[in-house]
Design a protein around this nucleic acid. Structure first.
Length: 383
RNA sequence: GCGGCUGUGGUGAAGUUGGUCAACACACUGGAUUGUGGCUCCAGCAUUCGAGGGUUCGAGUCCCUUCAGCCGCC
């Protein structure tokens, strides 16, 4: 019996409904820490904390999967400490599923101090200047110790635009890294390793990369290399090109996307999972997502606005506080304001996804998308 | 009544051998933020230096008058 269990994937996916109007789909992702419905938005908690939110609050607002970052936890407090705590979920007391990014994005975002070679990447530790080395094997080893339900292949996220030759070389290397990472993965009964499609905006490269990953047979696939400065049409094409070669019955994860119009378009393209720092980052800077579009709470028009931030939102902030109070807290640079606004933006996106799932199940996703884009004053096209 | 000091944008203020655009900071007003080192980044914000007049090619900077505030003396 035990043998049977060992051959099972720790994370499985099932499509539960396909919208007859749009082709968008709902599904359920089964994980060791519970089932979550898709499409979903995953908040980012880089340092084993979604900035300003408690894990209990996240759980209560149905955050589903929460991200943490391999690179950051490797540097502090170190993966062995997280392992001793019993894994990242126990460490931070989050009861739902978690996912760790591989550190691959940091190769891109810390471009000033890195050197990429076949073996791996040399970084300069921004904390103390130490020279560090991260490889596919090392990334997976760290992620095995951190212990999230879903772990990510170590990839290279290249800037846009890049020379085709570089895009191709990088993508081929990312494929070799995926193979090495898969071979190094020692906890495949407990943690699902997802592959990442790269290839820039070149159709043949995206296709090739996706096909090769599928041959390696991952329990889920991510689409990387988007939201790096390209225009909306290019982004859409990159997602389409990647997705059309992925198996329909496996979860698709679009990395780094969190703007409302981008999320709605991603759902149309059969994306099941998205993550982004956007809601929490812009909240810290006073920008809030509401059913009538983005607003900046700093503006003086909110000084005497004693209405809720968003009357259509059910979050703790909107149920209890006014725009005037948030304006005051933000101008005084009070942490409680940052907390309330972070709570709102995260819950807003989770709620948006809940409404999207309902619309899909009721076969009216296109109508829903158009209504939201209109009321939030996005361009008719979005994405 | 006499003597002294001060008077630059919403605020604190820099600015004397008189010489293009009046420094800087805060505040204020916009904008940005997409696999995260929170309190960040970008842009705008005094045709004008208490008021009036004079000297000068040129005055926030020199002179005169006046007003206001503060301090001291009668």
């Amino acid at each position: 019996m035990a043998e049977v269990k060992n051959t099972m994937n720790p994370v499985t996916f099932e499509v539960t409904h396909v919208c007859t109007q749009s082709g968008a789909r709902t599904g359920i992702l089964h994980t060791p820490h519970g089932d979550v419905e898709t499409p979903m938005f995953m908040p980012v908690g880089t340092q084993a904390t979604v900035k300003f939110l408690s894990p209990e609050e996240l759980y209560d607002m149905h955050a589903g999967v929460v991200l943490a970052n391999t690179y950051h936890l490797w540097l502090r407090p170190g993966e062995d400490i997280v392992a001793k705590a019993g894994g990242v979920q126990k460490f931070m007391n989050y009861k739902g599923p978690m996912l760790t990014d591989s550190g691959g994005f940091q190769v891109f975002s810390l471009a000033d101090t890195r050197k990429i070679r076949e073996e791996g990447v040399t970084f300069k530790n921004p904390i103390n200047g130490d020279i560090l080395f991260l490889s596919p094997e090392k990334s997976i080893e760290i992620q095995n110790k951190i212990g999230a339900d879903i772990i990510m292949s170590f990839d290279e996220c290249i800037p846009y635009p890049s020379e085709r030759k570089y895009v191709e070389d990088s993508m081929m290397r990312t494929l070799r890294w995926a193979e090495r990472g898969k071979a190094a993965h020692t906890r495949s009964e407990e943690q699902a390793l997802f592959g990442i499609v790269q290839g820039g905006d070149h159709e043949d490269l995206r296709h090739y990369c996706a096909e090769k990953l599928v041959e390696m047979d991952f329990p889920g696939y991510a689409i990387g290399g988007t939201s790096v400065g390209e225009d909306k049409e290019t982004m859409k094409r990159m997602v389409q090109m990647s997705a059309e070669k992925l198996p329909y019955d496996k979860p698709r994860y679009l990395m780094g996307v969190g703007a409302v119009n981008d999320l709605l378009e991603a759902i149309s393209l059969n994306i099941d999972m998205c993550d982004c720092v956007l809601p929490t980052r812009i909240a810290r800077h006073g920008t809030l997502m509401t059913s009538e579009g983005r607003i900046n709470i700093r503006k003086s028009i909110y000084r005497e606005d004693f209405t809720p931030l968003d009357p259509d939102c059910d979050c703790y902030c909107c149920r209890n506080y006014t725009r005037a109070y948030l304006n005051h807290l933000f101008r005084c640079n009070e942490g409680f304001g940052t907390r309330l606004m972070s709570i709102h933006n995260v819950r807003f996106l989770i709620h948006l996804m809940e409404r999207a799932r309902t619309a899909i199940k009721e076969n009216r996703y296109n109508d829903f998308k158009a209504e939201v884009l209109h009321s939030m004053k996005f361009d008719e096209r979005g994405f």
